[in-house]
Structures are given as C-alpha cells and as structure tokens.
Design a protein around this nucleic acid. Structure first.
Length: 810
DNA sequence: TAATTCGCTAGACCGA
DNA sequence: TCGGTCTAGCGAA
C-alpha cells in the first residue's frame, strides 16, 4: 500500500469489458493511473409496489440480453417532494450493458419509472464522489493492482505542483480542396511550451528554431517524443479536436508508426458529438483553445469578430500575425521558397494556442471544480450543461433524484411557450448632461434568492405565501421552505461576495489573486446562467413559470426605481432590464443620488441591491431610423467624468458594419460628447466622404463581417454575405455553416449582393464609394447629427460632385 | 443535442 | 420603380 499527495488530473473509464473508473493523478515524481474498485454504472427505478419483488424480478430478467449486476433499495426524494421514497439502484457491469438494458426495463411490464439513466459514467462518478479536478488528495493505493483505496482532500498548505503545458500545430499539404490524411502528408509541425519553441520539417529551413527531420514519420515520432519526454500534463491545440490530432493519428498509421501520446501508450480517441468531434488523450487532458474561445464567446467573456488565429491574436494579444492560406502553403511547399514564412506561421499558431490556454485555464479549472466536471468536459460544454452539472451534484448530496430530460415532444411544446422578458424604457432622445446610471447588482440571481423562486417552491399550498410572496404575474413562491435553486444560488452568491471582498486585499497579478479572480469569475458565469436555463426547453429543471416570475419581478423593480426617482426629483432618461438612467438637475448634488440609492436599498427585499454604476457628463440618445420622434432603445453613448466614451448598441460596436463607418461614428460621437460640437462632427464626416470618393480608403476599412448561420443553400433570402460566400465557394473556398465571412461591396455588379466579394479576392481601391457613403457612413451618423438640426444635405454639401461630374462628362 | 427575451436595421423579395 | 413585408443577423441586458 502506498500513500502520497497527488493532484487529480483527469478521470476516465475502461472501455473494454467491465467498466471501471480510472483516475489520473499527478504525483510528485510521476503520473499515476489508478482504478476505482467496486464502482459500477447504475440507474434508478421507482414504482409504488414492493421494492423487494421488483428487485427480484429485475435481477432475474433478461434485459435485452443483459443481466443486471446487482440491485439494491435506497431512499430518495423525487424532485419537488419532501418525503423520501423507495428507489432501486440497478447496477450493470458496463456502460454498454446499462445502455442496452435500459430500454428493456420498460418492456418488463413492471410499471416503473427510470431515473438518471443517461448520466455519463465519469460524470456520475464525479458527482457521487465529489472529487474535484486539479485539487490535491492524500491518496492510498495498492502498487500491484493499481487500485485506489482512499482519497482525502488535503489542505493547500504546501508547494503546488507545476503543471506542464505544451502546444502543437501541424501544417498539411492539400493539392486538392482539403487535406486528406489518407494521402496528404504533414509537411511541418511546431511545438511550444514555457521554455521551448520549435518547428520540425523535412526540409532545411533557415531559422534558428527549425529542426530538420529525415521524413514525415520521424516528424510524427518527434512530436510523440516531445509529449512523452516532457511528460506533459496538458496538450494544447487550436482545433485539434477536429483537425490536428485526428490527422496525426491517421498519418501515424499510414506511416507504420503510432501517435501513442496517452500515458498508457494509447492513441487519441475522437468522439463524435452532434456537430463536431472532440479528441481525447488518455491521462493528458487535451485542451482545444478554439473550443475555449467558442465557450467564452457564448458566455460574453470575450468578443471576437472572427475565430481564425490571426484575428484572435490581434484581438486578444494585440499582435499581428500573417495568414497563409492553404493554396499558398501548397505553393511554398511545391517551390520550397518561403519556407521561413511558413515556419513562422506554423510556430505562431502553436504559440497563440498556448497563450490562449495559459490565459483562460484558471477560469476553466475553477469551473470544472465548481460543477465537478473533468477539464476535458468543462472545456467543451454549454452553459446549460454547467448549470445542470452543478445542480446534479447538489441533488445527489440531498438524496434527490435528478429530473429526467424532456422528451422531444415536450421540448417542442416548451419551445412554443414563450414568456415576457425585461422592461425597456423608451429613451428621451437628444443630448443630455449630468447623468447617473443606477443598476441592480446580479438582478436575476438576487430575485431568485430573495423571492425563493424555484420549481419546488412554486405555488405552494400556504395562504400566507400567496399574500407575502406573489410575483406580479399569477405565480407565488413558498416562504416557509427554501427551494432547491435558491439554496444553491445563494451559496454561490455568498461565496462570490466573500471572494470579491478578499480580492481587494490581494496583489493584482499574484498567484492568489489569479486563483481567487478565476473562482469569482466562474461563480459569476454560473450565477448568470441560472435564469436563462430556467427557460431553456431541454433543461432538466425547466420551469417557464419560474423564468416568467423572475422577469415579472424584474419589470416591477425597475419600474419602481423609475417611479421613485421621479418622485425624488430626477428625470428618467432611459432604462433597460436592470438599469435606470437619471438626469441630475442642476440644483441637486451627487450625494442626493447616493442617498436615493440608499433609500431604494432600504426598500428592497433580501439580497437585492441597487448600485450606482457611474456618473456621466453627457449622454446621447437618438431617434429610430424611420422615426423623427420615437427614440431607439438599446442604443446610447455616454462620456464619463474622466472622458471615457461608452458606446452601446450603435453601429460602432457591430461587426456587420465597415470600419470606415464605425470609426466615423465614433469620431462624431466623440466630437459631440467631448466638445459638444456638431460642426466638428460634420467636418469629420465630410472628410471621410471625400476620402471614399477619392478612392483613398483602405481595403481593411471597408470589410463587413457577417456569419453564415445555416446551410449555404438553405437561405430564402440571399444577402450580401451569403452571395459573397457562394462566389467564394465556387472558387474552391471552404466555407461552411458558422463561418464568418468578411466581404467588400465592389464596383462590379448590379445589386448590393452582386457587388459583394470576399475581402481577400478584392483589390485595393475596388470599392463602391457611393455604397459606403450612402449605406454605411451616412446611416451611421445621420441620426446623431440630426439631433442638432442638421440633415443629410449638410453632410454631402460641398462634397456633392454634380458639378464636377457634369463638367468632366462635358 | 448551444441560456432567455427585447430591439434595431439592412437588404432581398414581391407585387403593383 | 416604388413601397411594404419578411428574412436575417447582431447586440443589450
């Protein structure tokens, strides 16, 4: 028996024969692969009859050719019920047997309900054991059988292990449209870690980081050797899930070698997901930085226009990086000219992938700990999965059965049912001075906590709850017993408040700070996801009533703040969901705003809290495009007291507008908010229009980005981005669903769509100046400028080229 | 088997 | 050629 302290790196299970959980630990000297004895896949069944008899029948039954390994009776609560009932745990020897048998249980005619039959084995184990990845455990195991006997979480009072991370990237030859691993070789590969940067190639390349290898086989083997000799803990790629790793594996087989980078000498395994794949390496979690960014984009942590490494490098690290398209890679490879460029490109790909992982891993590790997922799973999951995972763990702790997923029919019915969202106040158009913005901190979570919004506390039978805790719509929530969701959310909320407090005492950039910040960030992400998932049709704890009650309360509270502000002598300028914009009259001081906030807080229940978001010198709201009086919601610009511009909703923040228009708009807003000078703004616009007319505007300022959101042939209405994509596809480009296209409106064609071309096919200077003036610059500024009585003519006057055109034709 | 609703706008599409 | 309607995408919260 051996005892030591080790860090839990990963969890997996054996796929052959009996399913057994495998724990991958990082110990002081080596990696450990340990088996968990006596833990089998299982599901629950409930019914009203005598459990003993059911157990007997289940154990005797032939379930689709499978015999249950065991069945025992336990006590469990059904969700929403307080009392425990008998539930039968039915064990199977393997996950495959469980899958085969679960359908057959129904056909036994026993009138039973199945529960928790679709929880993946590893996730099941993690929520039962409460193990957390990247936590340290005192473990005890048998060195011969490799079975783990004990694990206890340790206190963190010792030097943590260094986690070894390495990133790799390959370049492939593609004489045809796509690279085909069954025939097209890997021509180059790069590897980057904390202290090494290297490019491997069969050709000699004149850069100090390149190493020549004898052939492709050696190239693959060198990569394997890097990963093994360094004994990497994490392997990072950029889209390695779908490309690099599967490609390497196929090439290795082709070349009669093995890409055996798993700690047990296994090759990566690719599992098909709905749309894409995920590739696993045993014992060395594979981090696909592309997947990290996709999740972070969905969560709104980062805002990326395009997801290719060049755009990402610029957006995240402000570093320009050259893009070498596939055709050019082939050219370079055929001619062997420009290999240095290709090497640098290849190296930077690994480097950017590495840096993305380095920056965001702390957050994903904390998320993984919080919801009891492996790093592999947490870096490939959706917000609803994270919430579900967290609630599943909590349910398990309370001996509560996890609700089943809804059927397709239920999902369809749920989708049909919509509910009312937040309240948006129609702004007062025009320029305003002395503005204060108030908003509710974590509005939705705090409503859930303060009003005990939960499916299991909905419409209880107590009369006084109806009186005391009715939402503005017909639902009410129990005041006597805390609901499941509020209980969980409150715990997370309180932990976050405490961490945020402790953060103030820590040094920014220190290890402790990074860790605590990642923890509070992970809590924030989960907290903000609860409300949305309540209304998500596939959610196990779905409750449209709860979602609708939350928003009903939100409307009530935000309107209450506006009413009270009016009473207190402030003018309401705007408000959206959780915010209220008020104008401070000249006879009022800032302190009065703070006093007002305090007054509101004294009236708010529970943990609900209104805060001052900030004071602003000036702000502008504009009327809607097609209106002269009605103001546009979700669009405004503010300038703070230190001169910082805050531009919200305007074209400036939208990727589907050309830079030239966005930049012009920003300058116009700045001229107006900073200097209060519409004249200056007009001069700027005129200048930009002139540049466009003179053909001086750079290509990069003309690109409009838009996403292809469905099958390219499924469009009923073919807009410019679809038209441009279709043309590019005809020319052999690989553009599928979800790719972002950057296009330019050129001089050639009739309709706008005719004129749209993918930016990379357009020459400098080939643009439709009139389009960019009429459809980009003018619409982006006209509404702002018209607030000061100016019109379109004032923008083009002097710039009107009628006379010039007339004479030149002359 | 990708968290919600609210809101703005462009440009295609279609019929007069 | 026009004006109204609809599809589509993106952003705010």
């Amino acid at each position: 028996m051996k005892k030591e302290v080790a860090l839990l790196l990963d969890v997996d299970y054996t796929k052959e024969g009996k399913s057994q959980i495998v724990l991958f630990f990082k110990a002081k000297k080596e990696k450990l692969m340990l088996f968990v004895p006596n833990y089998l896949p299982y599901l629950y069944i409930t019914n009203d009859e005598n459990p003993k008899e059911i157990i007997k029948k289940i154990l005797e039954a032939d379930l689709n050719g499978v015999k249950a390994a065991n069945a025992i009776c336990v006590e469990k609560k059904l969700f929403g019920s307080e009392e425990k009932t008998n539930a039968i745990m039915v064990f199977f020897n393997s996950t495959k047997e469980l899958k085969d048998a679960r359908e057959a249980i129904k056909s036994l005619g026993l009138n039973v309900h199945k529960h928790e039959f679709d929880i993946p084995f590893v996730k099941r184990f993690l929520l039962d054991s409460s193990l957390e990845i990247f936590s340290y455990y005192e473990i005890e195991y048998d060195e011969k059988t490799r079975e783990i006997k004990k694990f206890n979480k340790t206190s963190n009072l010792y030097e943590p292990f260094e986690i070894k991370i390495g990133a790799l990237d390959i370049e492939t030859y593609s004489p045809e449209r796509f690279s085909d691993p069954s025939k097209d070789p890997i021509i180059m590969a790069s590897y980057v870690d904390k202290d090494e940067r290297v490019v491997l190639c069969t050709e000699k390349i004149n850069v100090n980081y390149a190493t020549k290898v004898k052939d492709e086989k050696e190239l693959v083997e060198k990569i394997v050797e890097k990963i093994k000799s360094k004994d990497l803990d994490l392997v990072v790629t950029y889209n390695g899930d779908n490309f690099d790793l599967p490609y390497l594996k196929v090439r290795a087989t082709k070349l009669k070698t093995r890409f055996d980078v798993g700690i047990d000498g296994s090759e990566p395994v690719t599992v098909k997901k709905t749309r894409e794949s995920a590739t696993k390496i045993r014992g060395r979690p594979h981090i696909d930085s592309y997947q990290l960014l996709r999740i972070l984009t969905r969560l709104g942590v980062v805002n990326l226009i395009k997801m290719d490494l060049e755009s990402v490098s610029k957006a995240l690290f402000n570093e320009q990086k050259e893009k070498i398209p596939a055709e050019e890679i082939n050219k370079i490879w055929n001619s062997k000219k420009g290999l240095e460029r290709l090497a640098e490109y290849n190296l930077l790909d690994s480097e950017v992938a590495y840096r993305i992982a380095d920056r965001y891993l702390p957050l994903f590790i904390e998320l993984g700990k919080l919801v009891h997922y492996t790093l592999f799973d947490v870096t490939r999951s959706s917000s609803s999965q994270l919430v579900e995972a967290l609630l599943s763990t909590e349910a398990s702790k309370e001996d509560m059965l996890i609700p089943n997923k809804p059927s397709d029919k239920q999902v369809r019915e749920r989708i049909m049912q919509s509910y009312q969202g937040g309240f948006v106040y129609e702004p007062v158009p025009g320029l305003h001075e002395n503005i204060a913005v108030l908003d509710f901190t974590s509005l939705h979570p705090t409503i859930i906590i303060s009003h005990n919004v939960s499916p299991d506390s909905l419409n209880c039978e107590h009369k006084e709850c109806i009186e005391k805790n009715s939402s503005p719509i017909k639902y009410w929530f129990c005041t006597k017993k805390k609901g499941f969701l509020p209980k969980v959310i409150q715990r997370l909320f309180e932990e976050r408040v405490a961490i945020k407090k402790s953060l103030k005492k820590l040094q920014k950039g220190s290890k402790e700070y990074t860790l605590a910040d990642a923890r509070q960030h992970s809590l924030k992400i989960i907290l903000n996801s609860f409300y949305g998932t309540l209304g998500y049709a596939r959610f196990r704890w779905y409750s449209k009533e709860c979602a609708a009650a939350v928003t009903a309360w939100s409307r009530e509270y935000v309107k209450m703040v506006a009413e009270e502000a009016k009473k207190a002598g402030f003018q309401i300028l705007y408000g959206d969901t959780d915010s209220t914009f008020i104008k401070i009259p000249y006879d009022k001081k800032k302190e009065e705003v703070l006093a007002f906030v305090e007054y509101i807080n004294s009236k708010l229940p529970g943990v609900m809290n209104l805060e001052l978001e900030g004071f602003y010198r000036r702000g502008i709201f504009v009327t809607k495009k097609s209106e002269t009086t009605q103001a546009a919601k979700k669009k405004y610009a503010l300038i703070s007291e230190d001169g910082t511009l805050k531009i919200v909703g305007f074209e400036y923040v939208r990727r589907d507008w050309a830079n030239i228009a966005k930049e012009t708009q920003r300058m116009v807003i700045k001229a107006i908010l900073e200097d209060g000078s519409p004249e200056k703004a007009i001069a700027i616009v005129k200048q930009k229009i002139q540049e466009l007319r003179d053909g001086k505007t750079k290509k990069s300022d003309l690109i409009i980005y838009s996403q292809i959101k469905k099958d390219i042939n499924a469009y009923e209405s073919v807009g410019p981005h679809v038209a441009a994509a279709k043309k590019a596809i005809m020319q052999g480009r690989d553009l599928g669903e979800s790719s972002v296209v950057g296009y330019i409106i050129t001089k050639c064609g009739k309709s706008i769509s005719d004129k749209a071309q993918l930016a990379e096919y357009v020459n400098e200077g080939n643009y439709d100046a009139e389009y960019y003036i009429k459809n980009q610059i003018i619409p982006s500024v006209i509404k702002i400028i018209s607030e000061f009585g100016y019109s379109e003519e004032d923008l083009v006057a002097g710039g009107k080229q009628v006379s010039l055109g007339y004479f030149s034709k002359g």
